[in-house]
Amino acid sequence: MKSLILRDLRLALRSGGGFALTLSFFLIVVMMVPFGVGANLDLLARIAPGVLWIGALLSCLLSLDRIFQLDWEDGTLEALATSPIPLSGIATAKATAHWIITGLPITIAAIPLGYLLNLETESYIWLVASLSIGTPALSFIGAFGAAITVGIKRGGLLLSLLVLPLYIPTLMLGAQCVTIGSEAPIKLLALVAAISLLCIALIPFACAIALRANLK
């Protein structure tokens, strides 16, 4: 599994790998908001948590079809499916690599972008905590959608329709946790953590079933 994660990271950093695409999309989406909304600092501060979370979610969505599709197209997925690593292990490794490529850089980039959106000082800690705890759920739920649509050419629309409703609880809780004045952000953070842990524990097995069905 370690070599699969390392290989995916290496591929992401090579030309056409998608690492830069995700991060630059996140930067563009968030940086465009002040231009669209105008120089109303109070308004920007109020919408900053939602904008940052929606930006993270859309950036994550953009790279989901790469999780299994490229391996499917060049025969690697078939070879991996017949290797000693179980399909659930392969799904865990691929979703983990996806989080390192998307979730982690987004969490780090959100700090300077928060400044751009006039995010309240006391919200930064909750922003970093909610994104770092919530983005693994985005990667694992996305991996499930990617596993279901792996054999479908140009299945991006179907993938988005499948995954977006499943993202909503994480988005709501994550953004609410950062919003200043929200009651008991620690409880909201605990709920985000619970969703992430549930996804990490169960989704690899669902991915394995979906991949097995698509490989038949």
């Binding site: 699969l4 290496r10 025969g75 690697t76």
Partner: peptide, 21 residues
């Protein structure tokens, strides 16, 4: 299909499979 990654070198491709097996 050969399961070969075109953006990795021959050695990197084989190193990956050596890790898997």
């Amino acid at each position: 299909l050969d399961g070969v990654k075109s953006t990795l070198t021959v050695r990197e491709n084989l190193n990956f499979w050596a890790g898997i097996y």
